[in-house]
């Protein structure tokens, strides 16, 4: 009987705490991304907010799609990407993750 009471006491005590007491750690995943012209601009402008995984898992897309994605980052998410880099990153994305269609 005593054992049971102790057990219940312990259970109700621990339930006041979080399941995880230490800070959690989100792992880093080394997504394989293609190297090539414009990669520096990708590294400088995109990685601040999201992983390469977020890029390569969009699927193969048109040049227009990639251009609009980059512009969305500038217009809606306020990423400080220069006009020049918008062009460089769009060209890179279309070259390596494009579907061959301009539109």
């Amino acid at each position: 009987m005593m054992k049971k009471i102790v057990l219940i006491a312990v259970l109700s005590f621990t339930s006041a705490f979080a399941q995880v007491e230490e800070p959690v750690e989100v792992p880093f995943i080394p997504y394989e991304i293609k190297m090539g012209k414009g990669f520096d601009a990708i590294q400088a402008n995109c990685l601040m907010c999201h992983s390469f995984g977020y890029i390569i898992n969009q699927g193969r897309q048109s040049k227009d799609f990639w251009n609009k994605k980059v512009l969305k980052m500038v217009i809606h998410f306020k990423a400080p990407i220069s006009k020049e880099d918008v062009e460089i990153t769009t060209d890179y994305l279309f070259e390596h993750y494009g579907n061959g269609e301009l539109k």
Binding site: F28, I29, H50, G53, Y54, N57
Partner: peptide, 21 residues
Amino acid sequence: VSKIAFPEKRPLITYSDRPPL
């Protein structure tokens, strides 16, 4: 599924680590 498990998760299909998807 990925070989890497995220906190409190078993290995799942992993699209991105930042943000986690």
